[in-house]
Design a protein around this nucleic acid. Structure first.
Length: 753
DNA sequence: GTGCCCTGTCATAGA
DNA sequence: TCTCTATGACAGGGC
């Protein structure tokens, strides 16, 4: 474990960072799945500290890094999933579909068969809707419309989605059409890659991928057994997907590489085969498949980021993924994508009319509003910031915007949205912001900030640490502690700053006692963590500034034990003995009562051992030493109090998390309520429009009808009655007045029956 | 001096 | 029966 730890922290992680900086995302967990804890846990420590687990049992099982059913992280996991599902559901907002159908008509007029042929001649967009559209059987149009929030307010479908407008966007129609197809290709390939990634971690080995990509890349590449070598090969292959780390020749080599894929259709169950016809609109089923693909992509991104990047990035990733998915459905871009990552490409694909504004997406100094674009650029800007926050510093986008800045941009972008977009998107943005906030709160502050707090927070030195509790078997401090403690039990020993004791009088005894881990060593444990958890990685995170709890009153100002090596325990004891009296007084003063008691009673081993050893080993330890009754009683009290102390801390944290989760749940419910109310208002407006349209048509029909004398039928005197067989009768008003009465009477009788 | 908050501890229940 | 964990309640200390 120590070797792995060192390997990851000093070697592989750096290599991963390097690869990330050049656009490769290395999923190291892929190579460790099933055998080793995720890299995140190695770096940040496991997340099962709040569980009601048998600490010693967990400590004895190195594979116990799964989320415990009672774990707070599990709650967070489900909360995150729930919120992400809510965000994802935003792309299914039911919207008036009239504009959408109009957009489809404009989008690909030569390929739209049914939609264009049926609806376009009769669409009257000025009133915001038409009955033909509402009742249109064209499910594909409904599908697309239902899943695209941008399309909802397409300003009457008047080419606001410039991807299809002949006079919008970058202006060249032919080129735009070609690139649109290519982007569809790109999207499809990205989907395949993500599916490959999520279909099975074992599939995500480069060898497997290479098998698949061999037809695409005929040139021989080394079949290296080592992942690094494979990734190097991947680099040589060309541009690499920033999301999956896989080679994506289409990113840069759209024109060049595509001709080199003679059999691409054989391996790709993709839309690229049918792209020339672009039957997205005319064939509802491919449209459904495309949406399903996007759902898969989002789910995969979510899962992957939850496993690797932590909650903060997860939330934002899913959010960005949703945004990308929803927009990409609306239209495909023709702008050549840059080597940023998939999401950026998708955003570009989704916002065709704003390609000229893409430079602003990755330039935080460019005001999106200053680009003079439509609301779409602003939307894309906010989404791009999500993308950046999604992948954080490990992605190339992190070079453009640091995560906190992204969050800020994201938060500030929402109110800048114009009202038509804001009415629907503001909730989406609110959710995104909320997710980010949630991630910041629960992801960072609890995982990292509380770590910092807890390190500095214990009277007895038995600080509970969410990721460094005795139940946490991974991390280097275990090895540090193991080096400091006796062999058999040391591997399970807590790293929480050995609660020790050492005085002048006990110096010799401490030296004699091999197992005694003396000294108060919060700095020791902290420095052990420093080896893998560099605080500098949190630089630039303003959340860290909010960690105002300063419970360092019980900590020494500096470590009195500079040596944290193999014999740090014994050496610490000696060093403590060699300390100047003021320093010893300081340590003694800040030792817990039990430490002082143990010191006074000359307990020959540390409180940490007393508390954290399994009961068998604890009994062995007691049997090994000849202790008086008073000593034994004190030891048992120390053990009881220490365990109870940790239990109390767990309990309090759990309680606090429950409160926070409930609070978040209330906020979610409020958001849902607001969203439902907004949807209700939209539907009511749509119904009003439909009624208005019915009335207009009604009058139009009646005005064209003639009675038996050839005179026009006055709309006030006649009414239209629709028969069940589809017939339409023109009857006088008096007759129609009686008909509803008869119907009501009939209904009444039916009810009585 | 007072109130709030955090933490440790005790007692107790339950697994 | 023992051990461990969870939790309410209380007390002490810091701010």
């Amino acid at each position: 474990m120590l070797y792995l730890k060192k390997y990851f922290t000093e070697g592989l992680i750096q290599f991963t960072i390097l690869l990330s900086l050049i656009g490769v995302r290395v999923d190291v967990d892929t190579y460790l799945s099933g055998q080793l804890p995720p890299l995140r846990e190695i770096i940040l420590g496991p997340s099962s500290a709040y569980t009601q687990t048998q600490f010693h049992n967990l400590r004895n099982t190195l594979d116990g890094y799964g989320i415990h059913p009672k774990s707070v992280d599990l709650d967070h996991f489900f909360a995150t999933r729930r919120l992400l599902n809510q965000v994802r559901s935003l792309d299914h907002l039911r919207v008036p579909s009239t504009e959408l159908s109009a957009w489809l008509v404009h989008r690909d007029p030569e390929t739209v068969v049914s939609a264009a042929g049926q609806s376009s001649p009769t669409i009257a967009l000025d009133n915001g809707g038409s009955l033909e559209e509402v009742n249109s059987p064209d499910t594909s149009a409904m599908r697309v419309g239902g899943s695209s929030s941008e399309s909802t307010y397409s300003h009457g479908g008047e080419d606001s989605l410039g991807a299809v407008a002949p006079d919008s966007g970058q202006g060249e129609q032919g080129e735009s059409e070609d690139l649109t197809k290519e982007d569809i290709d790109l999207i499809d390939i990205l989907w395949r890659q993500d599916v490959d990634l999520g279909a099975g971690r074992e599939v995500f080995s480069y060898s497997s991928r290479q098998k698949e990509s061999e037809p695409e890349k005929p040139e021989p590449s080394k079949e290296g057994g080592e992942p690094e070598e494979s990734w190097t090969n991947g680099l040589n292959l060309g541009p690499v997907d920033g999301e999956t780390g896989e080679s994506i020749p289409e990113q840069f080599q759209n024109q060049e590489v595509r001709p080199e894929l003679p059999n691409a259709g054989e391996e790709e169950p993709s839309t690229s085969q049918g792209l020339p016809a672009l039957p997205v609109v005319s064939q509802p089923e491919p449209q459904l498949d495309l949406e399903q693909q996007w759902q898969d992509i989002m789910a995969l991104m979510e899962l992957q980021d939850m496993e690797v990047n932590g909650t903060t990035e997860t939330s934002a990733a899913a959010t960005a993924g949703v945004a990308a998915g929803t927009t990409a459905e609306s239209g495909f871009d023709r702008a050549p994508s840059t080597l940023i990552n998939q999401d950026v490409s998708l955003h570009q694909a989704s916002l065709p009319s704003c390609s000229q504004d893409f430079s602003a997406l990755f330039n935080p100094e460019v005001d999106p509003a200053a680009t003079g674009g439509s609301p779409l650029p602003r939307l894309s800007s906010s989404n791009s910031s999500n993308v950046n926050s999604t992948f954080g510093a490990t992605n190339l986008t992190g070079l453009f915007l640091p995560p906190p800045l992204n969050g800020t941009n994201n938060a500030t972008a929402a109110p800048a949205l114009p009202d038509p977009f804001g009415s629907l998107l503001e909730e989406s943005m609110l959710d995104e912001i909320s997710l980010l906030d949630l991630a910041m709160e629960e992801g960072f502050s609890q995982a990292q900030a509380s770590q910092l707090e807890d390190e500095l927070d214990s009277d007895s030195g038995l600080s509970l640490d969410s990721s460094h509790s005795p139940a946490s078997p991974s991390s280097s401090e275990t090895s540090c502690s193991s080096a400091a403690s006796s062999s058999a039990t040391s591997a399970t020993f807590s790293e929480e700053g050995a609660v020790g004791y050492s005085t002048d009088s006990e110096g010799a005894a401490l030296e004699a006692e091999e197992g005694a881990v003396g000294g108060y060593q919060p700095e020791f444990s902290k420095l052990c963590r420093m080896s893998y958890q560099d605080p500098s990685q949190f630089q630039g995170l303003p959340q860290l500034d909010n960690v105002n709890h300063n419970h360092t009153y019980n900590l020494p100002l500096a470590s009195p034990y500079p040596d944290h090596g193999q014999n740090c325990g014994k050496k610490a004891g000696r060093d403590h003995a060699k300390l100047q009296p003021p320093q010893r007084d300081f340590l003694d003063k800040h030792a817990s009562r039990d430490e002082r008691r143990a010191r006074a009673m000359k307990i020959p081993f540390s409180n940490d051992k007393i508390i954290n050893l399994p009961v068998e080993e604890f009994n062995e330890l007691l049997a090994k030493h000849h202790l008086s009754e008073a000593q034994l009683a004190l030891i048992r009290d120390i053990r009881r109090r220490g365990k109870n102390k940790m239990a109390a801390q767990n309990c309090r944290k759990r309680k606090l998390d429950t409160i926070l989760n409930l609070e978040q749940g209330v906020q979610d419910l409020r958001r849902d309520k607001a969203r439902l109310l907004k949807e209700k208002a939209e539907f009511a407006r749509s119904v009003r429009q439909m009624k208005h349209k019915v009335q207009s048509l009604y009058q139009e029909v009646l005005s064209q009808l003639r009675d038996e004398h050839g005179r026009p039928c006055a709309p006030g005197q006649y009414a239209l009655q629709y028969g069940a067989d589809g017939s339409v009768l023109v009857i006088p008003r008096g007759a129609t007045a009686a008909e509803p009465a008869r119907r009501a009477d009939r209904k009444h009788k039916d009810k009585k029956k």
